[in-house]
Nucleic acid binder design. Sequence first.
DNA 1: ACCTGAACACCGTTCAAGT
DNA 2: ACCTGAACACCGTTCAAGT
Lengths: 185, 185
Amino acid sequence: MPAPQRVSTESLIATIREIAEKEGVDAVTMSSVAAAVGVRAPSLYKRAANRHELLRLAADDAARELGSEIADIAAASDDPRAVLAGTARALRALATRSPRVTTLLFCAPHPAADHSPEMLAPIMAELLDAVRAITPDDPLSAARTLTAWAYGFCTMEQNGGFRQGGDVDAAFERGLEIVLRGIAG
Amino acid sequence: MPAPQRVSTESLIATIREIAEKEGVDAVTMSSVAAAVGVRAPSLYKRAANRHELLRLAADDAARELGSEIADIAAASDDPRAVLAGTARALRALATRSPRVTTLLFCAPHPAADHSPEMLAPIMAELLDAVRAITPDDPLSAARTLTAWAYGFCTMEQNGGFRQGGDVDAAFERGLEIVLRGIAG
DNA sequence: ACCTGAACACCGTTCAAGT
DNA sequence: ACCTGAACACCGTTCAAGT
């Protein structure tokens, strides 16, 4: 006798992200998620093969969020510099409002079970277009430099790597200037 | 009746790093480390308060390694550009030969139990000196830009973030050029 | 002073049985 | 077709007892 699914995928993902941000990634256990969603732990295996895939659902959701924001920015502006700056700021905004899941997005605990690479590919494509408008010289490396810096900055900020003090917001904007100037040659 | 310590701190740390690199950070359990070192799990609590501190021992060891390499580079060269480039390359070399522990160094799983910040402080001091020789303008932000990029690049490389192909070594050197040019203004 | 066995609470995962 | 209870192997951690 068929039984309807008791919990939607969207609310499942929202619950995972909520637990991760509020209590930490370690608190995302099969039973905590199940309890929060009104079900027993074994039922979750109908939605994900294992705990890691549960976390990947959350990371992919954040990547989708970031991707659509960046697509909006690219669509709204013709200035490639503005597109690149907007992308970096959007990543930092995500890292600020969803630090745990953003960390998950880039520092996958298991290298084997990496998050779907196709989630980040469209973002890279937008960036490449913008970089090409600035420099004809090896745009892929230039785009990677920007993403590596932005990602590294956000992760260090989240991990408390900036304890030396100073204005972190200003440091971000200064870093953005440095990288964009360097790319422009 | 006193009983001598059965395992030296150095061999304990070496064992942890070995397991982490060969079988993954998840494989570093109290019992696997204890077994590899010829002891029972509870004995490890004489050396570390918990599993996380065991991992922190390994991360701090790698940081010490990196720090002394960078100190050597700074001592051997008067060219600030060479010091900055050497630092970035030393970090990447560490990430290449000890990827798991390097990830641990920067992407601490628990934000609470972060690795000792004083491990990285001397490295930052060397960098600041070199940056100051290049630009007088907000050297702290400039140094952070370099470290954020280098760290981000290595982490993305380790996590397979560069699946789009291309020569990764060349991309690293190109990124280094971009960042140094940007800092020089 | 260090090490151990035994115990505790917890976790991820499997699976046969329910509806 | 989904959910459940019961079970399994494993883990981190504590602690009283050994030497």
